[in-house]
Design a protein around this nucleic acid. Structure first.
Length: 542
RNA sequence: UGGGCUGUGGCCAAGUGGUUAAGGCACCGGACUUUGACUCCGGGAUCGAUGGUUCGACUCCAUCCAGCCCAGCCA
């Protein structure tokens, strides 16, 4: 199930040769959006790597940019991470360390490793050079530590306008690695911070803040995605020059990207704003909240993430692979009957007001789950697609005119007549049942042409079934604008019947021969709504 | 074209000098079946390319090709 991976190998070696006694990891989201399946890789792997190696895991919000962040996102993320079954030892914020970061910046300045720059943002960009040409040094680069100290304090105290000055690390303007060309490490930003309110006017940049956060917490292995590989030299530089005691090691891995899934913030926002989806928790989205609402068990996500590994490559994983883990996590769901697209069957030779209660296993594969009583009477609903007038080929294992099938757990029925309305649509099947074929009676005289499920015609509950499809068509096609690629039929609501049982939001079932479904939160006294979590696999081809 | 990284069957992914090149998903056969489900059997790659080192290379070296990332006072 769990694959080996290069980070695990590194960790095991660090443990073996005594570099670390415990492994401490963290998940450091910026609270500026919602978590999705891709983030689950980082969350679960970080957690797993730590706790399975005698260590622990921290949840730390990287809230160094107040203009983008909000407390509603931290709340949402906390809920999602809890739901994933991931337990953090400490719940922290980068902003918890702003004082420490400020003090370390002073250390840098005193050592002549950082300076206050008066260049404008545009000028800094010009001075930085480009991929082919080295940058040139800022004219303010050689200010004395004393002057820098004063200027930096003034920045902190609000003597300067936003954007008028920055603190920069003094590294190498000619480095082929752009990140090392005197990166900005502090900027002035008069913005309300969700945690520190208006205490600070200056905020540290990611490249400066992150290594300090990791070092303060004693993070041993700081996992991040591939695009930060170029930042590693800077990460190491900050840890060293700021004289941090702990030396965390940054290791980069490939993000989890699901094929044909919308995860980009602005695209999801567009879908939400245009009402193409219900919200960020729409079951068609792979946001953690969307998956949760749809009914996906968190264990499916964990198993999928662990199986999918922690690679150094950047590929796209097919959704079918995830489906497999979802199905696997639902094998113990109660298996009941639901007719998603009903077709009425009248059993003409069945006594009018008679009702039989059949004993049915809740889950054939888990007898300990017991049985329940399923009603059967003169009128039943079957799936419209389980009937066809003429048997098309020998492979058709369902009902057809003059054919006989078994209604699972009940009797064989034979279709004798079709009733149609004026448009030609079939409205009812007249059938007869054979009393001798009752399930459990041991009848073996003849074989039915298949087994189909049913729901009693009167003892049932009407329900809405939401069936989902890809949100976006032609996903890879870059020539079609996003708005035109939205699949208008990504949500289809069907109206049918389920067994008359108790249904609570998020209850999960297997609807025999249909798929796995969960009760949606839109359910109320008036309506019962189910989401299709994942269909059953099927070899049947029309 | 400066720098960093990646390239194993349709997809994911182990393997790091000697294995018949794991495993999973998908797919195709077949068995079983009161879910065309589940389960169970069986099926496919010579490892981006080309050279080299070696008794022996997916694993080492060189060159080439392809893809991804970097020029925010975002993370």
């Amino acid at each position: 199930m769990e694959t080996s991976n290069f980070i695990k190998t590194i960790i095991e070696e660090d443990l073996k040769n005594g570099k670390h006694k415990e492994i401490i990891t963290r998940f450091p989201p910026e609270p500026n959006g919602f978590l999705h399946l891709g983030h689950a890789r980082s969350i679960i792997q970080n957690y797993h790597l730590a706790v399975s190696n005698n260590g622990y895991f921290n949840l730390r919000f990287d809230d160094t940019n107040p203009v983008k962040e909000d407390t509603v996102f931290v709340e949402g993320m906390i809920e999602d991470i809890k739901w994933l079954g991931v337990k953090w030892k400490n719940l922290l914020f980068a902003s918890d360390y702003f004082d420490e970061m400020y003090n370390r910046a002073i250390v840098l300045i005193k050592k002549g490793k950082a300076f206050v720059d008066d260049l404008s943002a545009e000028e800094i960009r010009e001075y930085r050079g480009d991929l082919k040409n080295p940058g040139k040094e800022s004219p303010y680069r050689n200010r004395t530590p004393e002057e820098n100290l004063e200027l930096f304090e003034n920045m902190k105290n609000g003597l300067y306008e936003d954007g008028s000055r920055v603190l920069r690390a003094k590294i190498d303007m000619a480095s082929p690695n752009m990140n090392l060309r005197d990166p900005v490490i502090y900027r002035i930003q008069r913005a309300y911070h969700h945690n520190t309110q208006d205490k600070w006017l200056i905020y540290p940049m990611y490249d400066y803040a992150h290594p300090i956060e990791d070092a303060i917490e004693g993070i041993t292995h700081s996992l991040c995605s591939l695009e930060f590989e170029d930042h590693r030299p800077l990460y190491d530089w900050v840890v060293k020059e700021c004289e941090m005691e702990n030396v965390p090691r940054q290791i980069e891995f490939g993000k989890l990207i699901m094929a044909k899934q919308v995860t980009g913030k602005r695209y999801i926002k567009q879908l939400v704003d245009s009402k193409a989806v219900i919200g960020w928790d729409d079951p068609r989205l792979i946001t953690i909240s969307g998956l949760r609402r749809k009914g996906v068990p968190s264990q499916a996500i964990t198993n999928f993430i662990l199986a999918t590994g922690l690679p150094k490559t950047q590929g796209e994983t097919e959704y079918e692979m995830f489906d497999k883990y979802v199905r696997e996590s639902l094998v113990e769901a109660k298996r009941i009957n639901a007719v998603v697209d009903p077709l009425l069957v009248e059993i003409t030779n069945y006594e009018d007001s008679k009702v039989e209660y059949l004993d049915v296993e809740n889950n054939r594969d888990f007898p300990e789950m017991g049985t329940r009583k399923v009603p059967f009477s003169k009128y039943v609903y079957i799936e419209r697609e389980d009937f066809i007038e003429e048997k098309p080929n020998k492979k058709w294992k369902r009902l057809y005119l003059n054919g006989e099938v078994r209604l699972m757990h009940a009797y064989f029925i034979k279709a004798n007549e079709i009733i149609k309305d004026e448009t030609g649509k079939i409205t009812k099947i007249l059938a007869t049942y054979d009393e001798l074929t009752k399930s459990g009676s041991g009848f073996t005289e003849r074989k039915p042409n298949g087994n189909i499920h049913f729901v009693d015609g009167t003892i049932n509950k009407p329900a809405t079934f939401r069936i989902f499809d890809d949100l976006v068509l032609d996903f890879e096609n870059k020539d079609i604008p996003f708005s035109e690629k939205i699949n208008k039929n990504s949500l289809v609501e069907k109206h049918g019947f389920v067994e008359a049982l108790e249904y609570n939001v998020l209850d999960r079932f297997q609807f025999a021969r249909n798929g796995y479904f969960a009760v949606d939160q839109d359910t109320n006294e008036e309506k019962l709504v189910f989401n299709e979590i994942v269909s059953l696999k099927s070899k049947f081809k029309r």
